[in-house]
Amino acid sequence: NQASVVANTLIPINTALTLVMMRSEVVTPVGIPAEDIPRLVSMTVNRAVPLGTTLMPDMVKGYA
Rank of each mutant, 00 (worst) to 15 (best):
A48D: 14
T9H: 15
P29A: 04
I11G: 00
M59W: 09
T54W: 02
L40Q: 00
V26L: 14
P57C: 06
A64P: 07
D58A: 11
N46M: 15
V20K: 12
R23W: 03
V6S: 02
A48W: 10
M43S: 04
V41P: 01
M22L: 09
T9A: 12
G31H: 02
M56N: 07
M21Y: 06
I37Q: 05
E35C: 15
L17D: 01
E35F: 06
I13Y: 11
A3F: 11
A64C: 13
D58C: 15
I37D: 00
T9W: 11
T54H: 03
P50H: 15
L40K: 00
G62E: 08
L10R: 08
V41Y: 06
T53P: 01
M43L: 15
M21R: 04
G31R: 02
E35Y: 11
I11S: 00
N8E: 07
A34C: 07
V26C: 06
I11L: 06
P50Q: 09
V27M: 07
T54N: 02
A34F: 06
P57M: 09
S24P: 07
N1Q: 14
L19Y: 12
A3P: 09
L40S: 00
I13A: 11
V20E: 11
V26S: 13
P50T: 10
N8Q: 13
V30G: 08
M56C: 09
E25I: 05
V20R: 14
N1L: 14
N1G: 11
T15I: 06
A7V: 08
V41E: 05
N14I: 03
E25N: 10
V49D: 01
R23S: 05
K61C: 15
A7Q: 01
V45I: 07
N14Q: 11
A7K: 02
T18P: 00
R39T: 10
M56S: 08
A48I: 11
P29M: 04
G62M: 10
G31Q: 01
G31T: 01
L55M: 13
A7C: 04
L51C: 14
L51R: 11
M22F: 06
P33H: 07
E35L: 09
T28L: 08
R39V: 07
R23T: 06
N14V: 03
V30T: 09
L40N: 00
R47W: 08
V6K: 03
V60H: 02
M22R: 00
M21Q: 05
N1T: 15
A34I: 07
L17S: 00
M59C: 04
M59F: 08
N1F: 11
R47D: 05
V5R: 01
V26E: 15
L10T: 13
V6W: 02
G52L: 04
M56I: 07
P29Y: 04
E25Q: 12
V26K: 05
M59G: 03
M56A: 07
I13F: 15
T44A: 08
A48R: 12
P57Y: 09
T53E: 11
I37E: 02
L40P: 00
N46L: 14
G62N: 11
V30C: 06
L19S: 06
T18Q: 06
T53R: 14
P29T: 04
M22S: 00
G52P: 00
L40V: 07
A64H: 15
P57L: 04
T44W: 12
S42T: 12
S24W: 08
D36C: 06
V26P: 10
I13S: 12
V49E: 01
T44Q: 15
G31V: 02
A7T: 10
K61W: 14
A64L: 10
M59E: 03
G31M: 02
L40R: 00
P50M: 07
N14M: 14
K61P: 07
T15Q: 10
V60W: 02
A3G: 07
L19N: 06
L51H: 13
R39E: 04
G31L: 02
L19E: 04
L19H: 10
E35V: 12
